[in-house]
Design a protein around this nucleic acid. Structure first.
Lengths: 189, 189
DNA sequence: GACGTGCTAGACCGACTGGTCTATAGAATA
DNA sequence: TATTCTATAGACCAGTCGGTCTAGCACGTC
């Protein structure tokens, strides 16, 4: 086993959130998937399920952010880079038989305003992802204001399209929604 | 009590899904909110929690569809009508202190492909809502293809924006994302 | 070797879950 | 009045939940 117990637990949580969501993920499932005994949860995550969820969010956004940075900083047109990202996301969704979604969005809809710590982590996560997109757009001459608004819209189209695609069992809702938004943006400098 | 026991249970489920999601809603919560004894669940919903969830989805989409039809069939410009809808949604979100979301999206992210019946109900729900929007756009001269694509994008922007707004604790992500998409569409005949 | 420390290991807990059961009240039909 | 059907009513069930506990193992450092 190359990874630490703690890492395996966080990864199991991320994966299960993508497929089933936070509330449908039991701590027993987690220790089974991570091949760990129950007690390690108490040791590594004294904050309980909330702490594991936040760790999974942080791990997910780290991964997403670096992939997004790599895609948008390659010098090509940012909107083209996002279109390619979209194609790969669609392929991945189909490969998973429409089982896997975005872990951030799923947890977002499972929380109430009382889950303060989780929502703070989620908000910070979306701020970072939008920041990468907006930075790329600004590098291409968009104003800070325009870039931020476009980032809102791009992330929204992706999350909202993905959600419709999963229940439809086909990628079209996600692909069409995102492509439509990206094309309109391209047409308007 | 003006409504039937069955209706009160379905409404309690809809409301709780909006706030907490399906998995965080216990059957005990439901019968408490509906002021009903446990046994009525067995009687009215022999299909268990799944059947209650589907009934809540159907009830929600009936309500949403009729409101959306009323808004888009008034003869005004459809995109203007949707902008007004957006303003009201933003006001409602703020009023709820960012507690209430879309019941369809929440359940969508809590289900797996194994939850076939629920996903079928959700897909049908989104098809109906997109259908109302696309019909309005076609009445204004858009082609069927364009109208459908625009409906994908509008619903996606709404759901994705709402999700970001809830964790951010401010309406901007939803308002900016939707307004941006609607404005771009207006600029392109 | 003794000791402290970081971590593994799994038994165990009360609370709660979705779901089932039987008893019965009330209205409609015979 | 007798019977039937629909719906209410709440006790009850096995299973699972998140979480806690103590025991012990493999390390270093004194």
């Amino acid at each position: 086993m190359t990874s630490t117990t703690r890492e395996r637990i966080v990864q199991a949580m991320s994966a299960s959130i993508q497929a089933r969501g936070m509330n449908a993920t039991g701590l027993n499932d987690l220790v089974r998937d991570a091949a760990a005994p129950k007690g390690v949860l108490y040791h590594h995550f004294p904050g309980g399920k909330t702490q594991i969820t936040i760790a999974a969010i942080d791990e997910s956004v780290d991964r997403l952010e670096s992939r997004l940075e790599r895609a948008t900083e390659r010098g090509d047109d940012v909107l083209d880079a996002l279109t390619m990202w979209l194609e790969r996301a669609a392929a991945g969704l189909r490969e998973s038989s429409f089982a896997l979604g975005c872990p951030l969005a799923t947890v977002a809809l499972e929380t109430t305003p009382d889950d303060r710590d989780i929502r703070v982590a989620l908000d910070a996560a979306f701020v970072r992802l939008r920041g990468v997109i907006a930075a790329g757009l600004q590098r291409e001459g968009r104003t800070a204001n325009d870039a931020e608004r476009m980032a809102f819209a791009i992330v929204a189209a992706y999350e909202g399209g993905l959600l419709q695609a999963r229940v439809a069992g086909q990628v079209e809702p996600m692909v069409e929604a995102c492509r439509f938004v990206l094309d309109l943006m391209r047409a308007r400098p």
